[in-house]
Simulated assay, not measured.
Amino acid sequence: MKPETPKTGEFSKREGLDEFLVPPKNFAMVDQGLFRSGLPQKCNFGFLKTLKLQSIVYLSTEPYPISNLEFLQSNGIRLFRFSMEGSTKSSAEIHREKIREALKVILDQQNYPLLIHCRSGKHRTGCVVGCLRKMQRWCLLSIIEEYRQFAGAKSRDCDERFIEFFDVSNLKKSSQPAICFRNTINFI
């Protein structure tokens, strides 16, 4: 006996949902209560509601879409905008100070659950997440592999060099989130 294929929209009605839950492109969990993606579209709003977001960190020079601003306002979500150009230039041209400021917001647990995104969720988001991974003491090879996974065929050497040489020592150790150490095992 073949399983019955639901008609369009039938699944959501059977599950008591008003719509299908569609994550934004390049969506992933970075850590507990911390997510990354590309710019959410209207079709992603139902999915975003399930995350119960408190904050969004937006990494782009482009204005935030009106429909997204309305969604944030109606759901009580704060927007932190860090105006960063998408760049294929050398790592020296990437906005170090803006990434530091974004990391300060990301490291503050009061902003969680939090979504980090740029337009595509690849390069700017990848640099910020890569720098966070350095703070979490991931090995560089794993950080670069994660960056490449999201950047795909458009992986940039300048972004990889930026992550490699980004100095996390200036960021307050006391401001590191508990998420960095949640999965550790305590030995007696």
Rank of each mutant, 00 (worst) to 15 (best):
Q54M: 01
F71R: 10
L79G: 08
Y64V: 15
N44P: 09
Y64S: 12
G46F: 05
G76Q: 09
E70C: 08
Q41L: 14
F71V: 12
S55L: 00
E62F: 03
F80E: 02
E93C: 06
L59Q: 07
L51G: 02
L53E: 02
E62L: 11
T50K: 11
I94T: 01
T50E: 07
K42R: 15
Q73V: 12
E70P: 00
I77F: 11
S60W: 01
K89R: 11
Q41K: 15
G86M: 06
K89P: 00
F80C: 04
Q41T: 14
T88L: 08
E85G: 10
P63L: 09
F80N: 01
K49P: 10
Y64A: 13
L59F: 07
T88S: 12
F80K: 06
N44D: 13
A92M: 09
T88R: 13
R78D: 04
L53R: 10
K89H: 05
F71C: 06
L79H: 13
P63Y: 02
I56G: 00
F47W: 00
L53D: 10
F82A: 10
K49I: 07
F45L: 12
S60L: 03
I77V: 15
L69P: 05
P65C: 04
R81T: 01
Q54D: 02
T88A: 12
N44G: 09
Q73R: 14
R81Y: 07
Y64M: 14
C43M: 15
S55K: 10
Q54A: 01
L53K: 00
N75S: 08
L72S: 04
Y58G: 05
Q54P: 03
T61A: 00
K49Q: 11
I66A: 14
V57P: 02
K52N: 12
E70I: 14
V57A: 00
L59E: 01
N75R: 05
F82G: 03
Q54E: 03
N75T: 09
F45I: 14
S91G: 04
L79T: 01
S67H: 12
I66C: 13
S90Q: 01
N44L: 05
S91N: 05
I56W: 11
Q73D: 12
E70F: 06
G86R: 03
P63F: 05
S60A: 11
V57D: 02
F47A: 07
L51I: 02
M84T: 01
C43G: 15
A92K: 07
P40F: 11
L53P: 00
N44R: 09
P63S: 03
A92P: 04
Y58N: 04
S60K: 03
E70R: 11
